[in-house]
Nucleic acid binder design. Structure first.
Lengths: 242, 242
DNA sequence: ATCGAAGGATTGTTGAACAATCTGTAAATT
DNA sequence: AATTTACAGATTGTTCAACAATCCTTCGAT
């Protein structure tokens, strides 16, 4: 189930390469710890759908698979739990998180707050260009019939919107929220129609943004998110087979 | 510096008493793990100002002080780092986080997004009553000349605003942000005037909320946060003695 | 069928060990 | 004198092994 490589590579996922500054002022690139690489590897497998919601993650198994100690796996679990990607049940183990109906609403509440706020504040020309780029990326993916890429492009679109605020904390929150949603998509196997439906909306919102009509763009975005939540809630009703 | 009690009590801070459900459906109250209690204890000391920003937290020292093993302290550190209350410098140690000028702006960006959004959506009568209660709590504290309580009341006020959204995730984000700000206040020793100045604003905002003028209340809140950020940035300029 | 008592498995936590890395100091060099 | 180098001490990063506590399952008794 997990990779059989003895040691986890350190560059597959965009890691938090925190650059520190030593006492003398020399710049020092922080090498990711083993625990971080384990967390990265698990995050990757979660994003790819290799580990589906509800799956149990046994410490010893993962430790062996990745060739690290149990304690190290444990540290990674604490981190992933704080990102809500896994849930820790005391004395029972950790499980891949699974979004319930209430969670979907909650996630969208966060997205509405963050995305709409970022949109209302607008961003630099470069930021706006990044939003446009994500829209075009989506069009290309749709033309090529690549549904996987279409979903990715959509996430880029919303990520670019939040990035306009230029806030590391908002970016990180948004990243976590999108990671949570990815988890859900793999469980529910949302069909491609889901994304195609929103291609035009993205274009419209982007146009409003580019013409400086921030309030209108924000309202459109809000409506978009409301509709998106409704759609996903329906999907959830069908998917909840447990 | 740290408590000399051999074991950390488990009830001093509002812990995440995650209630699990066993296979048979029986409800099970999760007893906080030692690592969680260590994290709670450190959170408490950080909130109380017993550990000032920049302070180094040595693993072995804390392990001895609290009578737990280094590995357990380590787990607590991972958690606190994910909340940005401490910063981990690889191979150098963990330090109590310290808000720089950019961080203050960033924190307020998050607050604007979350609080204003919650205010625009409004809340149930109970939620509004909680906001009112926080306002009155602040008045009482001011009348009693208790500056500490005044600051707490102010945080309750903003916490209650976010709570209107009824979103666990937003509440948790807001909790973290407020914890970060508490850290800053202890370093900068903001004077009492800072809070007194905002007593009237809280009242005004609360009135607008109670009369159902959500958009106006949201605008007032936004202006409030802008001003608050400016004030704090000034304070930061004076406080940054390093 | 319900209940309770083993048994096995997994987690929670500890303690010790060791390599890697950092910090500060003292010696050596220019 | 200033800079570099070398070294020793301390702390972190990680592993390993052990054991108690807890959970889940199975088996047996009622």
């Amino acid at each position: 189930m997990a990779s059989s490589e003895p040691i986890v590579p350190s560059s597959r996922v965009a890691a938090n390469h925190a650059a520190t500054r030593t006492a003398a002022g020399r710049l020092r690139v922080a090498v990711p710890s083993v625990a971080d690489r384990v967390a990265d590897e698990l995050r990757l497998q979660l994003a790819e759908g290799a580990l589906l919601p509800g799956t149990r993650l046994t410490e010893s198994t993962i430790a062996e698979d990745l060739g690290v100690s149990r304690n190290t796996v444990r540290e990674a679990f604490v981190e992933l739990a704080s990102e809500r990607l896994v849930v820790r049940h005391p004395n029972r183990g950790v499980f891949v998180a699974s979004l319930e109906a209430g969670d979907i609403h909650d996630v969208y509440t966060v997205r509405r707050a963050i995305e709409v706020s970022a949109m209302r504040a607008g961003g630099s020309p470069e930021n706006v260009a990044a939003v446009r780029a994500a829209v075009e990326e989506g069009k290309r993916a749709a033309a090529a019939g690549d549904d996987e890429a279409l979903g990715t492009a959509n996430q880029h679109f919303h990520g670019a919107i939040v990035a306009m605020a230029g806030s590391p904390r908002l970016n990180s929150i948004m990243g976590q929220v999108l990671a949570e949603m990815r988890l859900f998509f793999h469980k529910a196997t949302v069909d491609a129609q889901f994304y195609h439906h929103y291609l035009k909306d993205n274009e419209t919102i982007c146009l409003a943004l580019e013409s400086g009509e921030l309030d209108r763009a924000a309202d459109l975005l809000q409506a978009y998110l409301d509709r998106s939540e409704d759609n996903l809630s329906e999907v959830h009703g069908e998917a909840g087979t447990d």
